[in-house]
Amino acid sequence: MHVGLEHYLLVSALLFCIGLLGVIARRNLLIIYMSLELMLNAANLAFVAFSRFNNNLNGQVMVFFIITVAAAEVAVGLALIVALYRRRQTAHVEDLTTMKL
């Protein structure tokens, strides 16, 4: 069977679900962050696939922006995790319950 747009979209959807599963099921902050990266990458793949099959370059520009924003987000997020670890000595979401009622 010839590989078309829907094959790429299926891979993208599955990768997004894997990332979502990681965000929900894992308890380590670092692994949650990696799963977030997986979800962003899944969106990127869908963008590139749509861009290729619609003959429109705007999707690829959007992916370029997403990659840059993701890099900034990772830098800030990891700095937050380090600051949190210094204060609380934990990177485990179940130990961070200050906001819990």
């Binding site: 094959h7 891979v11 599955l14 990768l15 894997i18 990332g19 599963l21 990681g22 099921a25 894992r26 692994i31 990696m34 799963s35 997986l38």
Partner: peptide, 14 residues
């Protein structure tokens, strides 16, 4: 590549 992406993605999470 698709199989590699999905398998490694799964191994990142679980």
């Amino acid at each position: 590549f698709a199989a590699l992406t999905l398998i490694c993605g799964m191994l990142v999470v679980a």
